[in-house]
Amino acid sequence: MSQNSMRILVCSAGRRVGLIQCFRSAAERLNIDLKVYASDLVPDEAAACAIADVALKMPRSDAPEYAAAVLQAVKENAIDLVVPTIDPDLKPLALAHEEFARAGARLHVSPAHVLDIVRDKRLTAEVLAAAGVPVPSTLSLDELRATPDRLNWPVFAKPSGGSASRGLQVFDRIEDVPTEFPEPMIFQNLVRGPEFTVNIFVDADGVLRTVIPHLRKSIRAGEVEKGVTRRRQDLRDIAEGIVSALPDLRGVACFQTLEDDIHGPCVIEINARFGGGYPLADHAGATFAQWLLEETMGRPCTAHDNWREGVRMMRYDSAVYVD
């Protein structure tokens, strides 16, 4: 990596066109010659791979050879920064962080022990509750069956390791709950109220530099479709509690809250990566992509919390064409 050039690899790029555009805009502001590599299982069918400078084919994130394949791509292409974008990417790469460091690449992934917590929603609830961070009452299937009155019915069920709104269910009575599920589930009180995503940036020294919430006004396929940035001191307080509970969390992360009139906002999940709604935060002035490039290049990090409130995002369908 020279003083004015950088190569980044966006893993499992899929539809993350907006994220790549944020990195390119950041590079222009920093006067960096940025070359973007994007990888996917089928790069010819991934829009983000089509707009990248170089597209790479990778095995599935859950394949045993995944981390080795990404590491090989890093070595062959002199990659400076690796940016995973989906949860299954995180743990395999984190376990190989020393190999990436020896190859000269920064891996934008928190340590494996942090991922073990945030990728398990049951464990997330336990760790945050112990730190005084508000979370919904959470039970396993066995606990629910043994003590169904511990929750208020109807109850909300979701996979403990799920993402992208996969496997969400609502049950009105204990009699409606199946005796078995295809994967471990958690059960919580059903909360009907405003939902926020809170994007945060934790610098290389572990200091929380930015907290930018947005109201999720409309959701499609698990990602915000319409949103608006809002300053909320209570959500900032929650962010500070999360960073205190997870002191080794680094870089970009986001968490989601649901709230009602009685309990206020409760954390329902944490993602230790760029969230799908990050471009809204970037447009509002919380330019995480730029700050990550600065840290990777050894420049002073210009992270701040002076973003604009009331910025709205309304997503629409577009297309990438390849002849």
Results as ranks from 00 to 15, higher is better:
A38S: 03
I86M: 09
D33W: 00
A55H: 02
L30C: 08
K57S: 14
A52K: 10
V74L: 00
R29P: 03
K57I: 07
S61M: 15
F100I: 13
Y66P: 11
P64K: 07
F100D: 10
L115H: 03
L41M: 13
V42M: 12
P84F: 10
H113A: 11
P88Q: 13
V54I: 13
Q72I: 00
A63G: 05
D40T: 02
I51W: 05
A112N: 09
I79H: 02
D44Q: 14
I32E: 02
L115K: 07
R60D: 12
G104Y: 06
V70A: 05
A47N: 08
D80S: 08
A26E: 02
A52E: 03
I79W: 03
A94K: 08
K91E: 14
H108A: 15
D33H: 09
L81K: 05
K75C: 03
L81A: 07
D80R: 02
I117H: 06
A101N: 10
L93D: 06
R119T: 15
A112E: 13
D53N: 13
P64T: 04
T85K: 02
A68E: 13
K75H: 01
P59R: 12
G104D: 10
K57T: 13
V54K: 08
D40Q: 07
A101D: 13
V36I: 12
V36R: 04
